Amino acid sequence: MTHPFATDERLDISEQARTADGQIIRLNRRLFMQLHAFGGCTDPDLLIDSLRRQPFGSVLYLDVNDPQGVALLTFSEDADFFVDELRSYLNRPPFVALQPKPEYTMFGRTYAIGNEEDLERALITRPRQKVCDPKWPWAIWYPLRRAGSFEQLSPQEQRTILMEHGGVGHAYGRAGYGTDIRLACFGLDKNDNDFVVALVGPELYPLSSIVQRMRKTKQTSQHLARLGPFFVGKAIWQFEGAHA
């Protein structure tokens, strides 16, 4: 018996975009990124010494809101990395002695928005470079969930709202104040968030200013159901990975 929803079309879950000349490009790769926060760290140098001996890419942040707080960002194209290699690593000294803060755990994947001309750079290379750039040590990480009202808008209304929101970020980026990393976390987040966002830059104030300006956009003021919690920190260790 044929299933009522059966189709002969092959399901394509690759990331897709369109070049300036209209050519559709596809890439079935994406980068997973995860942030773990900890308390009880009195000697971050021990963590750096340990990370220095690891082949995987990582960023270690000092928590601006906790004098003994740190956060570890890791990233990989292979989701198995987080339950195999990383899990084993975090269950050994020095990280196993720290106090986990699961309320700040964030996990997501890079995704295409449709106008990228180089998908590998946009999805794989550029996010790693952004978080590991020594010129951009400050970071604000936070999850968000859109309200159902956004999904009920027409595609044109959605594009207009997203263009307004994105325009703020682009203005700050052109001025050299910061840049962002956007991750999708549908089905990957215990609180059912839709996205994880990171703002990174050379100084903290401009990143806070971006958040303030975003509050006035239609997306944030009318179509967000939840925002945060926010992790705010400064990188003291950045490594793209042995095979980056």
Rank of each mutant, 00 (worst) to 15 (best):
P229T: 03
V232A: 06
G178D: 00
A112Q: 01
E151K: 04
L47T: 01
D80Q: 14
F56H: 12
A184T: 10
P134T: 05
D21S: 09
I113P: 03
T105V: 04
G167A: 04
R215P: 07
G39V: 00
K190F: 11
I210K: 01
C185N: 13
P134E: 11
G22L: 04
S154R: 09
M214N: 03
P4E: 12
P94V: 00
R10E: 11
G148T: 13
G187E: 06
E117C: 06
A79C: 07
D180Q: 14
Q212L: 10
S76C: 12
S208H: 14
V211M: 05
I13K: 13
I13Y: 15
F195A: 12
I236T: 12
P202G: 07
H223C: 08
W141T: 10
V196D: 06
M1Y: 14
L144E: 06
V211R: 05
L86T: 00
I210S: 04
C132Y: 09
L204Q: 03
L144A: 08
I25L: 02
R10V: 15
L162S: 11
A225K: 04
F239C: 11
L153I: 00
G57D: 09
H243N: 13
G187T: 03
T110D: 00
R18C: 14
D118S: 03
T220P: 01
L72Q: 01
L98Q: 09
W141Y: 15
K135H: 12
Q16V: 08
F32M: 14
S154M: 04
